[in-house]
Design a protein around this nucleic acid. Sequence first.
DNA 1: ATATTGATCGACTAATCACTCGACAATAAT
DNA 2: ATTATTGTCGAGTGATTAGTCGATCAATAT
Lengths: 187, 187
Amino acid sequence: MTAKEQSILDAALSLFVSNGFHGTPTALIAQKAEVSNGTLFHYHKSKEALVKTLYTCIVTEYQEATLDGEQDIESIKEKVRLLWKQSIDWAFENRDKYHFILQYKYSTTKQDKKTDQVGNLKKRFADITEKGIQQKLIAHRPDDFIFSMFEANQYGMMSYLLENPVKYRMPEFMKQAFTWFWDGISA
Amino acid sequence: MTAKEQSILDAALSLFVSNGFHGTPTALIAQKAEVSNGTLFHYHKSKEALVKTLYTCIVTEYQEATLDGEQDIESIKEKVRLLWKQSIDWAFENRDKYHFILQYKYSTTKQDKKTDQVGNLKKRFADITEKGIQQKLIAHRPDDFIFSMFEANQYGMMSYLLENPVKYRMPEFMKQAFTWFWDGISA
DNA sequence: ATATTGATCGACTAATCACTCGACAATAAT
DNA sequence: ATTATTGTCGAGTGATTAGTCGATCAATAT
């Protein structure tokens, strides 16, 4: 990806988060990215395509950050702890991107088959969950229910942490928060 | 509220949920509401104002539905159960409205001091939580953290139930889901 | 009866915006 | 050296749209 290409995505993210998709003219994105109007459309065939590309990039980054290093861990509980921690860390350190994901999720662009980009994380999580259930560590529940609760927990944690950022730096608080989550899904 | 006024709000909700705020021209709202363009602006001084009014109406309805009858119950646990159930029931039965709330929450209309309409429910919930903590029923945690977890749980439940609507009609599943939530916040 | 008020209409406008296009530059391929 | 390809520009355009305006109409008050 060229520097200009990246610069367009950066500008778009920042403007989308503060003004919304439709509140952000492509001309403004180009301007902020220090690129001409035409260049923007050289890289993205439409505004819609730009939004989608941005979403895909961000979700991919999120999933990689969340899954990073999971393979190196044996214990199911520690795997879950890692995913839980990393998903919150990423969202906390990349608020704009996290905000954008939610914004996109609940936006509705005409007849858009929101490609379920979350598939990868969901799949790996399901594997872990299943193994956990076999080992009688995790309660016997549908994979996707547990995954919903995982996402919900991140959602709630973020909503709280953004109001009380200081708590993020309190290991005891964070540790306890995970314990709650784990107790919730464990057998 | 006159019939036309209501009709405008209904049309707006339906169109917003399927096309987004900015994807919905005011002219289309007026058309669907079977009202002239001028009439729409007679009732709402701007599109922005219309969106805000709609949001306020919906959040108020949500809170009233969720809080309904809470005063008549003594037990803290049963109060929480009622709120938990009613908040999910309402969201499940009013998907468009629930979707709109999230859509609005993560939309960003320029320099908009998102008036924290949730205040009422949050306040009553905090009262209950506090009493629960005193009675050693609920774990000793900040009010707003528990409330975040309450909202997060609803978020997760909805995300799961919308994919698996049949589960909503299984009392055992729903009962267990509440138990999970309660175990999570109880002492 | 008359006046006042508010509801309703829909054509109109001024502005905005997504996207195009043709030109030019830089780089790569032959 | 010549051609092809790709990147870059920004002025221009056609379509869209939020919001206005002046005109009726209905209802109520005086």
